[in-house]
Nucleic acid binder design. Structure first.
Lengths: 366, 366
DNA sequence: CTGTTAGCGCTTTCAG
DNA sequence: CTGAAAGCGCTAACAG
């Protein structure tokens, strides 16, 4: 039914091989032949059969991008950046890669399922974004699957998630030579959270609540660790009292922030500041505080994390930690295409800058 | 290198055909054989070669989703909803489809490019989301490409974009029988904008500014038409004066709102209300007004469109028009998979409900 | 520079 | 219910 290479070849009066060569453009072909072929292609409106060429060439132009929540701009920005790198450096015709954005919903099972699907498609590369679930069993399964994919020629890049633990001995590659098959673009979540907490401490806050993300995620843990380390350093001892002022939300969403803030207020009515797992959670926190008749920042300071576009426009503008999402995604995209040499140690860490805006201020002194 | 069907067949002591039948599960196979095959599959960690099976079966399990801006939750929500419909109705094993989310950046060329890429992959279905660019040449090219895709067996669904004009005579299908090949889930942008404007009018506003989206998009035009029709009806005549109070932003983004509001204020300092192209633009409008020392809604009322999650949490909570994005995406997904019969006329229109919140109030009476 | 010749790995009649 | 065999449409040696 559809027009095939052979049809084009017949029309142009050449062999199928020649047409293939013209189309892929990686082989010398006489100018006259080339134009003749191209004309036949146009006249017939020929479109390559992807599956057939992938099968024959044992390669595909699909690149997988795994995200926890596609409706969250955090992931949208990263995915968009990765995708923007996928079209040839100079907009070259042939080098078009197709991004397959997979929405795992943060579920480990879905993550594995999608990896299987991508393996089935013989994806050229896969970028896994966002924090990982910390579960020994899942980590092992994930790691194994990733190793197999890498062994099959699929490039693997982690973006915004911590590097994989060292490969088990004898598992790192067919030849066992030291090259890590999995590259990482990591966020400095610890450092960012530490600086944010230090900022609050410097303003004079002492009763600081923290609405953390889901307990089992690496991002949650790292940000919390940064927060705790700042408190610890400031007090010069283990932070026992900090514990009760941390609540874990069910997700990185608005309602977790709302509920979390209420819970925090119940535990410690004299709270003067609340740190949120991210900007979206912070918005929920703000809503809850306002509903309780508290002003921001006069009564309670609030800070987020990520610096998503809407944060600067919130009222009051949100103090937060800026993560260079676009830059990180672009970097991951380049690494995925092998367009950029691997960073030292296979891990690139991008900075996390404190953005002080209007939602944080000195605590009331009454 | 990779393990193939033949390997599995050998291990299970059956023919390749049998393994294929077990795996696709669409053909009677003896229970004992089936378990034997499954065991071999597990032991060998066999993963089907997608390209090969697509080639042989002349079909693929890829579903394309075209979005204008993947970083915008408007599209993220729709894409996520479509995707959630892609895994079998009951989570069935075999029916896994892979969503290919393509970020066109609103560019007609990119749109066409991605359609070619998807055609190359022989995508099972394609969902085009968001408003279309109104340009005769592009519309024709798009329509032609879509018809060809549909003719090739790819299901096409439009979500949040108006239905395609009627197919040119003799172009609608090989047989020419009346069935429309392209299904549509449309938003009631006109009605929503009209109701929103009526709300403002009812509050007593007369100097209403409008920060529209990019001029050439259908969504922009429809919302503007709804707005104008409400004004017209109210004044009982053609709205000549309304014209100067409309500015077009360069995009559906925050800065368009900011700049647009400033421009509006310059043209009409006595403005008492501003309608924005969407919620994101509205946030920019709010920021600009605040920067000018104006209070919302005391000095100026502001309203958005879409009702994205952050809108309810804005300060003040944004009056807007709620579009059932998730529902629409899910509907589109079902239609794309042929899991739901086509709506009458091939077009389903989803409602657009007015959400009155705190950013609109009666104008000052001084 | 171009044509010929084998497959890539799977699905699918068609026989048994 | 199972096997044998014939491609699906393209690419990649290998000759010329």
């Amino acid at each position: 039914m559809a027009v095939t290479l052979a049809d084009v070849a017949a029309r142009a009066g050449v062999s199928a091989a020649t047409v293939s060569r013209v189309l892929s453009g990686n082989y010398p072909v006489a100018g006259a032949t080339r134009t003749r072929v191209m004309r036949a292609v146009e006249e017939l409106e020929y479109v390559v059969n992807g599956p057939a060429s992938s099968l024959a060439a044992a390669s595909s132009d699909l690149v997988g991008i795994l995200v926890n929540d596609i409706a969250d701009p955090f992931f949208g920005i990263i995915a968009g950046a990765v995708q923007s790198e996928l079209n040839g450096p100079d907009g070259a015709q042939g080098s078009h890669k197709l991004a397959v954005v997979c929405n795992t919903g943060g579920s480990p099972e879905q993550e594995l399922t999608y990896l299987t699907l991508l393996q089935r498609q013989r994806a050229a590369a896969i970028v896994l974004t966002g924090g990982a679930v910390e579960d020994a069993e899942h980590s092992a399964a994930l790691s194994a699957r990733l190793q197999r994919l890498a062994a099959g020629g699929t490039r693997i890049v982690l973006c915004g998630r911590p590097p994989l633990g060292p490969a088990l001995p004898g598992q790192r590659g067919p030849q066992g030579h030291g090259e890590l098959p999995v590259l990482t673009v990591a966020f400095d979540n610890r450092g960012g959270a530490r600086r944010l907490t230090e900022h609050l401490l410097a303003l004079g806050h002492r009763a600081i609540g923290y609405v953390a993300g889901p307990a089992e995620r690496t991002t949650t843990r790292h940000r919390l660790e940064g927060h705790r380390s700042a408190l610890l350093e400031h007090r010069g001892g283990p932070v026992r009292e900090a514990e009760p002022l941390t609540v874990h939300g069910g997700g990185y969403d608005r309602s977790s922030g709302y509920d979390g803030a209420l819970e925090l207020l119940r535990r410690e009515p004299r709270l003067t500041a609340v740190l949120a797992a991210n900007d979206t959670v912070a918005l929920g926190v703000c809503a809850a505080l306002r509903d309780q008749g508290l002003r921001i920042p006069e009564d309670v300071s609030v800070a987020g994390f990520d610096d998503l576009p809407f944060s600067a426009d919130a009222a009051p503008a949100l103090t937060t930690v800026r993560l260079p999402l676009h830059e990180a995604g672009a970097r991951a995209g380049k690494l995925a295409l092998g367009r950029q040499g691997p960073p030292p140690g296979g891990v690139a860490t991008v900075r996390a800058d404190l953005m002080v805006r209007d939602s944080t201020a000195r605590p009331r002194t009454d």
